[in-house]
């Protein structure tokens, strides 16, 4: 409705459109380039002669007869057993999301509905916890976990990721719950529900958008984590990201960098899909904390 009145003078419009185009290029190009390059041989993607080779695939054609090759993917997924770390990632992320949301909705609801002073202090405490670098926490876990013999297992990493995730989850769900009128659960309680029934039967059904958005961010945290999974999981239990980190060194020596490139592209693909389908939720989640908090 404001569009017509806001028209910019031409030079400014050109400048700002150009700037946006430049930014989109900067944001997207590395990904497009790497996806494209992952189907080439190393001599093309890391060409000593000209990066034009990477586009045309000169050496790839010379080596394999076609401009595209799946060798990198074959090497990573089959030879280097990237597949098992993919399964580990699925187990870890799904568990983290489910447990985080269960704990987070309960806690966030309590924080949003209690009028007492200590909720404020709990939220502040969560903020301080949120600021703790993950690696410092990891350095606190290692020795006790060794001693208790629970180091290296997936459940350990899962509960640690859940805990690290809680401060953020609590803040986010707290602000979502605040946006749901108190009248709703109160009328449920007057109608005959206990507090928990009101939460389950009445509040959660209208909370789905908030729960999904928060779940997305829990997923991202678990999926993107490096510090915790790299330090707390034993070799066979490793998830994708530490797996990539651990075979970086060896593949470089063996001349199989393309394995790593293929693995990196494989690990990024699910995130692409995620943004494609949940762009609106991600944007609203990022702003929820800012606008309300």
């Amino acid at each position: 409705m404001m569009v017509t009145k806001r028209r910019q003078p031409l030079p400014l419009a050109v400048l700002s459109t150009g700037f946006v185009l430049l930014w989109v290029f900067m944001a997207a190009f590395p990904f497009i380039w790497t996806v494209w390059g992952s189907f080439k041989v190393e001599q093309d993607f890391f060409s000593r002669d000209s990066w034009w080779f990477a586009i045309e695939g000169t050496r790839t054609i010379a080596r394999t007869g076609s401009a595209f090759t799946g060798d990198g993917y074959y090497g990573a997924w089959v030879l280097r057993d990237f597949f098992s770390s993919v399964i580990n990632t699925v187990i870890v992320t799904v568990s983290v999301v489910v447990v985080s949301l269960t704990f987070g909705t309960l806690g966030g609801y309590a924080l949003a509905r209690s009028g007492y002073r200590y909720t404020f202090w709990l939220l502040m405490l969560a903020l301080v916890f949120r600021a703790m670098p993950h690696i410092t926490l990891v350095s606190g876990y290692l020795l006790p976990f060794f001693e208790m013999n629970i180091w290296g297992y997936m459940p350990t990493a899962i509960i640690v990721l859940v805990a690290i995730n809680q401060p953020f989850t609590l803040w986010m769900l707290h602000s979502f719950f605040l946006s749901i009128p108190k009248d709703l659960d109160e009328s449920a309680m007057v109608d005959g529900c206990s507090r928990f029934q009101a939460f389950r039967l009445v509040v959660i059904p209208v909370m789905w958008p908030g729960v999904i958005t928060t779940g997305l961010f829990s997923f991202l945290l678990a999926y993107n984590d490096f510090a915790v999974t790299a330090m707390l999981l034993s070799q066979p239990n490793q998830t994708m990201v530490p797996k990539i980190a651990s075979f970086l060194g060896t593949v470089q020596q063996e001349g199989n960098v393309m394995f790593a490139v293929a693995a990196v592209v494989s690990a990024t693909a699910p995130l692409f899909v995620l943004v494609l389908f949940f762009q609106r939720q991600i944007v609203s989640g990022l702003t929820a904390g800012a606008v309300k908090g």
């Binding site: 009248d183 709703l184 109160e186 009328s187 009445v202 209208v206």
Partner: peptide
């Protein structure tokens, strides 16, 4: 309730 508190 003032805002009715209907279950949407």
């Amino acid at each position: 309730f003032q805002s009715y508190g209907l279950y949407p």
